[in-house]
Design a protein around this nucleic acid. Sequence first.
DNA 1: AATATTTTTCCGAATTTTGAACAAACGTTT
DNA 2: AAACGTTTGTTCAAAATTCGGAAAAATATT
Lengths: 221, 221
Amino acid sequence: MKVLIVDDEEMIRAVLKEYIEFEGGEAEEAQDGMEAVKKCRENNYDVILMDVMMPRLDGFSAVKEIRKFSETPVIMLSARGEEYDKLFGFEIGSDDYVTKPFSPKEVMARIHAVMKRSGTEKKPRDVYEFEGLKIDIVGRNVSVNGERVELTPKEYELLFYFVENEGVALTRERLLNQVWGYDFYGDDRTVDTHIKMLRGNLKEYRKFIVTLRGLGYKFET
Amino acid sequence: MKVLIVDDEEMIRAVLKEYIEFEGGEAEEAQDGMEAVKKCRENNYDVILMDVMMPRLDGFSAVKEIRKFSETPVIMLSARGEEYDKLFGFEIGSDDYVTKPFSPKEVMARIHAVMKRSGTEKKPRDVYEFEGLKIDIVGRNVSVNGERVELTPKEYELLFYFVENEGVALTRERLLNQVWGYDFYGDDRTVDTHIKMLRGNLKEYRKFIVTLRGLGYKFET
DNA sequence: AATATTTTTCCGAATTTTGAACAAACGTTT
DNA sequence: AAACGTTTGTTCAAAATTCGGAAAAATATT
């Protein structure tokens, strides 16, 4: 989370910065609209907190300028009594507003809301872990006791399918359909061969792939 | 500190160069806008000193051109009386200005100010750095061990997409969709060719682009 | 028109997949 | 427990696929 705080009052900037950094975010400051625009050209912020009344270049004009090259969400900080649609909406391109005096908590809530809306919040990656067997599907990594294991494409696909269906009894037919594809018309013993290779690569965790005699296989820990 | 001095008067270039080198900086010269643009494509400067009145290509046009591929700060050198916002501000993208006749000391002060504000300032710009591979997405430049690397548009887009998805296994299909666009109906192997070119340009850091046999590629450090 | 970039195509080396053959394991029946 | 048929594990080599390199062909840019 990287936030640009634009306000000419140092006190306000300091307080907001404090809160953002307390939550593990990163905050930079700008004293006026001019500086804000410049900083936006050089950095990618997740959110901009923009005061309206400022010397040199006011908040509205700054947002207008920033909108020429960036879609970064903006939350306006303003005195009470400003017109609603000037603060929030289409006219200038800001995403939310807070009226002064505001509580930092309120501002933080707005930041999270805006970031959630614009999809900036990072989602943690799914990594499965079964004892010493780590499986990162998105990154296509498999490691056994911290050591990276290289698998062939079919082995990856097979393992991923097993993991996503932990504890489910899978027939060879189903595996062929799901992992190989509906258009595969080969021998179902092909599965066995790949199971063998996969087990070999999983070392001591070969035990997770259980044979169900007369049926197929199952991934179970 | 690496500065490009753009001015058609040799005397001015010589004096500025003297000062910059006295302070331990590095200075290169260009006689006009044309030459300046060319040099900027080939090098990464920390600051550019740009005269306005020059033959072939004037300072304003040169800055406009340079802004298409780089965010390097520019300080305009101009005769007194030019309009403020043409020299400094949004219209052309320069960062500061000095009016002639100027004292070299004054120029040096501006250089330091500008560098503090942007380039050399420690506050992180949106620049990724993987060992000696620097990737500035906003500034759209890539350097290998400090040396600027010229990439073709597709190569930039591809690399940027990789960097933004560090550690994620990417299929050729996804790359085609995201980098080429959903309406691209070409061959899968197109990706491979661009990967090859990109790897070539990344020199020793080609290793960051990992081939995932049977799937696609992944950017991993 | 001349260049630069992008896309397609082909080749060959290397890897992966596949299924047949055989061995081992299993469960049931005798 | 031994015998038997069935199912699964293992090995292996042929077949298929994949990827990088190179270069031609098509497009875009200047």
